[in-house]
């Protein structure tokens, strides 16, 4: 293991790479209730550095709610551990500081700001307060590197609101990279993207996953087949199947759920993509 230091905010950093040390996310027995309605009843899954974990399930299965609970947006019971740290019960910004980053089903970049400003703000939580008081004079190397990775290096000065839909999604991923997230929770990252954009995103996610745990919520089955390392299937708030792509696809319960929803949606699971958001 490489030597570690602890920065001002207590997040362990890998000295050799400058990256935060990779760590796993382990969710067990997660339960979320809205009033009397149980949105997530018993969800358990994990995500490890080096794998792209897909979380799938029909509309309303509770996928987004799981992410909301892990990131502290809604209250959940059970456990969600990042390494040794319990995440549940923490305020949103503290969870983020531990290295949990997320995107949203609807792209939510700062539209009035440039790409650079978006990335710079995302990179800011590890800055000392004194650095906040000064203007940005140069583009930090890690921001440049992230912009390069998400294909926006040439558009740093562009206003984020004018980016294409796909570029906004990439910018959000880039923000998680500079934020130094150790776990990325991505809510439908390729919704509304063209086939080529999906492929680019998938490749990007695989590269990102080398040093981080990545959880992808998606409806696009084709995308899942191409890029998932492991898959967790959620239905009505609980996990009904888990394993490799081949394994979950062969699982009769999964077929039943998807055929059931296909009947109501009039679509085959593989074509379920695009039917959302």
């Amino acid at each position: 293991m490489s030597p570690q230091t602890v920065d001002v905010l207590g997040a362990p950093q890998d000295v050799a790479t400058g990256l935060a040390a990779p760590v796993s996310l382990v969710v067990s027995g997660l339960r979320v209730q809205f009033g009397g309605f149980v949105a997530v009843s018993d969800a358990s899954f994990d995500a490890h550095p080096g794998e792209v974990r897909f979380l799938i399930g029909p509309n309303g299965a509770g996928k987004t709610t799981c992410i909301d609970a892990i990131t502290g947006l809604v209250r959940g019971t059970g456990s969600a551990k990042l390494g040794d740290d319990e995440l549940l019960g923490r305020p949103v910004h503290r969870t983020a500081r531990l290295g949990v980053g997320r995107t949203f089903q609807t792209a939510s970049v700062f539209e009035e700001m440039s790409v650079l400003q978006n990335l710079d703000i995302a990179a800011g939580m590890n800055r000392r307060s004194a650095a906040l008081l000064r203007p940005r004079r140069t583009v930090e190397p890690r921001i440049e590197a992230a912009a390069e990775q998400i294909g926006l290096a040439g558009s740093l000065e562009q206003r984020a609101g004018t980016l294409s839909h796909g570029q906004k999604q990439w910018l959000e991923i880039g923000m998680l990279l500079v934020q130094d997230a150790r776990v990325l929770l991505l809510d439908e990252p390729v919704a509304g993207m063209s086939h080529d954009e999906r492929t680019a995103t998938g490749t990007l996610l695989q590269r990102i996953a080398e040093h981080r745990a990545v959880v992808v919520v998606e409806h696009d089955m084709d995308f899942m087949r191409r890029f998932a390392t492991r898959v967790t299937v959620l239905h009505q708030g609980s996990v009904i199947s888990e394993g490799s792509v081949a394994h979950v696809q062969a699982d009769p319960r999964v077929q039943e759920v998807y055929l059931g929803s296909a009947a109501t949606h009039g679509a085959d699971p593989a074509e379920h993509e695009g039917a959302t958001s």
Binding site: T71, P91, V92, H93, A96, R97, G101, R102, S108, F110, E112, I121, A122, G124, M125, M175, Q179
Partner: peptide, 11 residues
């Protein structure tokens, strides 16, 4: 402009 979003960036 987006108080909630800022929270998720660790502020």
């Amino acid at each position: 402009d987006a108080e909630e979003r800022v929270r998720f960036l660790g502020y």
